[in-house]
Design a protein around this nucleic acid. Structure first.
Length: 469
RNA sequence: GUCCCCAUCGUCUAGCGGUCCAGGACAUCGGCCUUUCACGCCGAAGACGGGGGUUCGAGUCCCCCUGGGGACGCCA
């Protein structure tokens, strides 16, 4: 049987890293087995589902390169089918109408809690034959009272639940709309899903879904419940844990392959290896090898991974993400004084994110307003006026503007005065970049171009003289 | 509270009864390199939650406790 997996998010918010990881695992499992990856939007909660969220999820998956073969299917468009299954269950006596009111149920649960029991529906409407006046009934699934329901999970192994612990859950609301556990079951069945890979917060739903499947006479899929991703405080992930939206990582200058790599290494490993490309994962990943314990997503490690991927990419492959970052800063990539790829190459090994690349390389694309105060204080002192002027004059005389020729000029000034290279290089750096960080000074000047370099050196010279005066 | 799941360095993890005075990675702290910042290299510190078993031998198997997470909704 060909493998069919699915990712079934509810569109109530952005695609967060927990969802992205289960999507990744499902995607990998399908791709490894030449199977199909189905995308299904679980939007039965009309109140909270939004089209913006659907778009955010689609965008996030696309950015990560998690392409789907079928869908997106929308549960909101399948209500007739759910109705059909609910009617069948009703007709077969495997489901029944329940007329209990909210107040009645609350009172019941309260009493159970007080008695030290798990709150659950006691089945009081199971044998009711008469409708109750003025109450629109819900439909409940008649769950078995005795025995066990056993799930054979790829990650957790055999998990057994006492049927006595499972109550008659609502499969249709009083307005007739189907609920989650019913729609999941019907969809996975109709869509021929063979492997359900989802967060283990759903482990408790599994026996319920298996019971409905059994009532329908359908073989359950294979389950793999992957552990949750927790925040730094070991609590469930939420907005308060910083960047959790996949698209936010994009905005922050992360590369999709870094996020994929980082997500895959949460709960899964392959010996001592840390860096996995998409192809590596396709070759080595096994859902069955995923660990059982919940984990915390470590931003520092992702940053390190992102740096390795930035260095691994060809400069040309960074043009697009860098352009995005420059534009979001109001900078014009076309204003680059040199070939954009050459600028990128000079910035690669000192950037952990593309955002950082745009920030440290900012001076290439726009002039700066003022020198960094501390940098100027320390480097643009009267003592450097003379050597700086010498460098300026030497550079002005160059007819060939290369890193080598630039370096030659600076080296000559340094040698003639018996200085250390840095004593001259750093003031130049502050003069042309405004700050203390940039690629090697000869490369920086070469990239900046002769005219701009001379202009900014002159300005720094004026600054030094004014400060001295 | 009840049920389910989980438990190795700060974090992600290796370990599948002896080769573990527990290995790798990130972070941290030293050092080297150096034209700044980085990159790179070298080194240090840092963990088997506790208690019982089983066994010649337990990080590895079993039980209990503790701790954490999840579920218990006319949310998904």
């Amino acid at each position: 049987m060909t493998v069919r997996t699915r990712f079934a998010p509810s569109p109530t918010g952005y695609l967060h890293i927990g969802g992205a990881r289960t999507a990744l695992f499902s995607w990998l499992h399908a791709r490894q087995n030449a199977g199909a990856f189905v995308l299904r939007i679980e939007d039965t909660d009309r109140e909270r589902s939004t089209p913006e969220a659907v778009q955010a999820i689609l965008d996030g998956m696309t950015w990560l390169g998690l392409d789907w073969d079928e869908g997106p299917y929308f549960q909101s468009q399948r209500t007739d089918r759910y109705r059909e299954v609910i009617d069948r269950l009703l007709a077969e006596g495997q489901a029944y109408h329940c007329y209990c009111t909210k107040d009645e149920l609350d009172a019941m649960r309260e009493a159970q809690r007080e008695a030290g029991h798990k709150p659950m529906y006691d089945g009081r409407c199971r044998n009711r034959s008469e409708p109750r006046e003025g109450v629109d009934p819900v439909v409940r699934f008649r769950a078995p009272d005795a025995g066990k329901t056993v799930a054979d999970d790829r990650i957790h192994g055999r998990v057994a639940f006492d049927n006595a612990e499972l109550d008659d859950l609502i499969i249709a609301r009083s307005d007739g709309s189907p609920t989650y556990n019913l729609t999941v079951v019907v969809d996975d069945w109709d869509m021929g899903i063979t492997d359900v890979i989802r967060g283990d917060d759903h482990l408790n739903n599994t026996p319920r879904q298996m019971q409905i499947l059994a009532a329908l006479g359908v073989e359950p899929p294979r389950y793999a419940h992957v552990p949750m991703i927790l925040g730094e405080d070991k609590k469930r992930l939420s907005k308060r844990h910083g960047a959790v939206s996949v698209l936010q990582y994009r905005q922050d200058g992360f590369l999709p392959e870094a996020l994929i790599n980082g997500l895959a290494r949460l709960g899964w490993s392959h010996g001592d290896d840390e860096v996995f490309t998409r192809d590596d994962l396709l070759r080595l990943f096994r859902v069955d090898d995923v660990g059982k314990q919940a984990s915390v997503f470590n931003q520092d490690k992702l940053l390190w991974l992102n740096g390795t991927y930035i260095r691994a990419r060809e400069p040309a492959e960074l043009v697009e993400p860098l352009t995005e970052q420059l534009q979001s800063r109001g900078l014009d990539p076309a204003a680059a004084p040199a070939d954009l790829e050459a600028i990128i190459a000079s910035l690669q090994e000192r950037s952990k994110t593309v955002a950082e690349m745009a920030d440290t390389g900012r001076f290439f694309f726009a002039d700066f307003e003022a020198f960094d105060a501390k940098a100027a204080q320390k480097n643009l002192k009267p003592a450097v006026e003379e050597p700086l002027q010498a460098v300026r004059d030497g550079l002005a005389g160059l007819t060939e503007w290369t890193a080598e020729s630039v370096h030659g000029v600076i080296q000559a000034v340094v040698d003639a005065r018996d200085l250390k290279f840095g004593k001259v290089a750093q003031p130049i750096r502050v003069a042309v970049t405004g700050g203390t960080v940039s690629p090697p000074i000869d490369v920086t000047l070469r990239l900046l171009g002769q005219a701009t370099t001379l202009e900014r050196l002159d300005r720094a010279l004026v600054y030094i003289r004014e400060r001295a005066a």
